[in-house]
Amino acid sequence: MESMLNSPLGPFPSVSRLYGRVWTGGPQAVIRYYEVQPPEREPIPICAVARLGLGQLRKKPESKPGTAILEFSSAAIYIVNAFR
């Protein structure tokens, strides 16, 4: 999965690309990022997660199995020490 920062994240400028995985099983989506690629630089390993209020990305009821329809198209990104 590929995302893009729309504001700076620490030393990473906006428009840096984030690469990771999305899990859609359960009532909310889980997004984990493993790599960030700032403009004109090599990719850098990271450990980050996407979150919305209360740390959740709740799926809309009309989400079909294997998909996640979310209310918002953006979320906060947090650098973490490890995935749980």
Score class of each variant (00 low, 15 high):
K60E: 13
P38S: 11
S74L: 04
A68N: 03
A68H: 01
L57W: 02
G53S: 14
P65V: 12
L57P: 00
Q56T: 14
I44Q: 04
P61K: 04
I69L: 08
L54P: 04
K59Y: 04
P38Q: 06
R58E: 11
S74E: 07
G55F: 13
K64C: 01
P38H: 01
E40K: 07
K60H: 11
Y78S: 14
F72N: 15
K59L: 07
K59Q: 12
Y78V: 12
E62R: 13
V49F: 08
G53H: 09
E71W: 10
E71L: 12
I46Q: 02
R41V: 13
E71K: 08
P61G: 02
A76N: 14
P65D: 10
G66Y: 05
L57S: 05
K60T: 08
F72D: 12
S73C: 14
R41C: 12
K59I: 00
A75N: 02
I46H: 01
S63Q: 10
E42A: 05
P45K: 09
E40Y: 12
E40T: 15
T67A: 07
L70G: 00
I44A: 04
I77H: 02
G55R: 12
A68P: 00
P65C: 08
V49N: 04
P65R: 11
E62V: 11
K64Q: 06
G53F: 13
I69M: 05
P39M: 07
F72E: 09
K64T: 03
G55A: 13
G53Q: 14
L54T: 06
K59M: 09
E71I: 13
L52H: 11
L52F: 11
E62D: 13
A50N: 01
G55I: 14
R58F: 05
Y78N: 14
P38Y: 02
R41H: 13
K64H: 02
S74A: 08
A68K: 00
S73F: 14
Y78C: 11
R51Q: 14
P43D: 00
E40L: 11
L70D: 00
A68G: 04
E71R: 15
P39V: 02
I44V: 11
R51T: 09
E40R: 11
